[in-house]
Amino acid sequence: MMKVEGFDNSLIFSFIEFMKSKGATLEYNNKKHQLDFLIKKEVIIIIRLPLDFELDFEKLKSKEADFKNYVLIMIRSGIASVGFFENFECHQHKVFRAYMTRKKQGKSQIKHLKTKGKSRAGSRIRLQETLEFFDQINERLQEHFDEFRIDKIGISCSETLIPYFYGGKIKTPFDKQDPRIFKIPKHIQNPTFEELIATNKFLLQAEIRISESGALIYQDFMKEIKLKNSSLEENNDDW
């Protein structure tokens, strides 16, 4: 179990140099856009990098952040939101809703079909709305991909709904193995417009995960940063 907390974006390279001085090796996970820090082949600390952070992993130096466009796709049973972000700012968005949940049981029609699958009028309506729901999402995505260059594709969607997302009448403008795809590392309960904006803000902020064996090393780093800051403050006071 790892402790999770926010991490100051400006400290990323200081932390890389600190960990290298402690004998740690680094591995970059492109799919998750994160750095894994290992000691004796054990991952002790992970930093999820901000979406606007470019890394030359071979030289472990920052690269000038390129103009980046991306879409965030968040889907839950009966509600979804799709946002197009131009250079990290929300440029277009749309929220989709559908009558997919059986009122008494609170179960989506897809899950119901996997168990009992009764063919009643209400069930047929819910299933039809489910199919249209995903077609509308993919139609919107097609528009974005036709009009703009898309560099990244962030997705939050339950495993139950994934086959419907990729298997609709209107296809996604990318396949499951597209290297631009990354899984949004955050649980999205209700993908409203407000949650879309909050998720983008979350993705632009670094996050650190610390194992028990990495806790003391991380504490040493933070002490070192505090000492440096104190020294800078004293020098400024002298002026």
Rank of each mutant, 00 (worst) to 15 (best):
I125E: 05
P163A: 08
K32N: 15
C90S: 05
C157E: 01
F174G: 02
K3V: 14
I46D: 13
E147K: 15
I44R: 14
I46W: 09
Y166M: 08
I73D: 02
R149D: 03
T130H: 06
D36N: 13
K22C: 04
R97Q: 09
E5Q: 15
R126I: 14
C157D: 01
F15Q: 01
K223Q: 15
Q177V: 08
P185C: 07
M74W: 00
V43H: 03
F193V: 08
I162W: 01
I46T: 15
I16L: 05
T172Q: 12
P191T: 01
H144Q: 03
F145L: 07
H112S: 13
N87M: 04
I153S: 06
E147Q: 15
T199F: 13
E132D: 14
K22Y: 03
K107V: 13
K68P: 00
D56N: 15
L26A: 03
K41Y: 12
V95S: 02
K107L: 08
R126W: 04
E159H: 10
K183Y: 12
P185V: 07
I47S: 03
I184K: 06
I181F: 07
E5H: 05
K103C: 00
R124W: 00
S14C: 01
L55A: 02
N235E: 14
N69D: 11
K94Y: 04
S211W: 04
Y28Q: 01
F53Q: 11
K171S: 14
L141Q: 07
E143Q: 02
I181T: 05
L60I: 01
K118M: 07
V4A: 03
L131G: 01
K41G: 09
N87I: 04
I45A: 00
E89S: 13
N190D: 12
I47F: 00
I184Q: 03
F15T: 04
R48I: 12
Q128G: 13
V95I: 15
K61L: 14
F37K: 06
S158H: 01
N138W: 05
L232M: 00
F96G: 03
I39E: 08
N69L: 07
L72S: 10
F148S: 02
V82D: 01
L196E: 01
S62H: 06
N229Q: 12
F202E: 08
N138E: 03
Y28K: 04
R97F: 08
D135H: 07
E147A: 14
K183M: 14
L216R: 09
L38R: 14
E195Q: 12
E64C: 00
F88Y: 15
D135T: 12
Q128E: 15
I73C: 02
L216I: 09
H187Y: 13
L232K: 06
E42S: 14
V71D: 03
P191R: 02
G154N: 04
I110A: 12
S21Y: 00
H112M: 09
L49Q: 12
K176N: 11
N29P: 03
N69F: 10
I125M: 09
N190L: 06
L127I: 09
A121F: 02
T199M: 06
A24Q: 02
S230C: 08
D178G: 11
L203G: 08
S21E: 09
D175G: 13
A98R: 02
I39N: 06
F18M: 08
G117E: 00
T101S: 02
I184G: 03
